[in-house]
Amino acid sequence: MGGLTRDPAFAATTFVVIDFETTTPTGYPAQPIEVAALALRFQDGAWRETGRSTSLIRPPVFAPVTPADTAQTGLTAEQLRQAPNAAEALGALDQRLTADTPYLLVAQHAATEAGVIHHQAEHCPTLARTNLLDTIPLAKRLIPNLPNYKLDTLLHHFNIPQPTQRHRAPDDVDVTAKVFLRLISAAEEDPRIDGLPALFKIAGRTAKANKPLQAELFDV
């Protein structure tokens, strides 16, 4: 393998691929209705899964599941009626992040996941302080000239089969993880990406909780 995976900081990091499905009520930020996370670590020359979590989430009354949400995800209000609320589901996920372990979240279009986490930060403070890697800018650097960098386009490029439940968090996490690992393999061939700092410079996104207050005021 190349310089990236030989970097001690890279080897020490647990990469948590995360995806939310949401409903977006008028006048409110997106509210999660499903979350999935898959933890990966590069150890002894190979990737290993070190954890997995998924949960449906009951949305608040001001953010009901709409027909459009159901058409997109297949999730219905009836399915979510007995699900844990966001505080319970995200609190449980947060508790799975162990102290003193370096983490980076990984997401396709990480701004979306970052926004959901930021607005739920009181329920998942550790998650809210975890920086992110976005597969889109990494793909743009490593695979120039694709028509676009949507997840479906990247799946097609890498010959990764479409999941059976596209737009459900567990399946989307699985295929996003596959894309991420293919991108890391490609990054190994790029001498400019010689370690975790170089990777983060290309694809990193600082969690809002880690930004100075003045920076947050002007963050759009």
Score class of each variant (00 low, 15 high):
G3H: 15
G3E: 14
G3K: 13
L4E: 03
A11F: 00
I18D: 02
F20A: 00
E21M: 04
T26Y: 05
G27K: 10
Y28A: 13
Y28G: 00
A30D: 13
P32F: 07
P32R: 09
P32V: 09
I33M: 07
A36E: 01
A37T: 03
Q43F: 05
R48L: 07
E49K: 15
T50K: 09
T50R: 14
G51Q: 10
T54G: 11
S55R: 12
L56K: 10
R58Y: 02
P59R: 05
P60I: 01
P64Q: 05
A71W: 03
L75E: 02
E78Q: 14
Q79L: 14
P84R: 08
N85M: 04
E88Y: 00
G91E: 07
R96Y: 02
L97K: 02
T101K: 12
V106P: 10
V106E: 12
A110I: 11
A111H: 07
A111R: 13
A114K: 05
A114N: 08
V116L: 06
H119P: 01
A121K: 15
H123A: 15
R129K: 12
R129E: 06
L133H: 04
D134H: 11
D134R: 12
T135N: 08
T135P: 09
I136G: 00
P137G: 08
I143F: 06
P144L: 10
N145T: 04
N145H: 15
L146I: 06
L146S: 04
L151M: 14
L151I: 09
D152K: 14
H157D: 00
P161R: 12
P163C: 10
T164A: 14
D171I: 03
D174H: 10
V179W: 12
L181K: 13
L181I: 11
A187P: 06
A187C: 08
G195N: 10
L196Q: 04
A198I: 01
I202R: 11
A203V: 05
R205E: 07
N210A: 04
L217K: 15
F218R: 14
F218D: 04
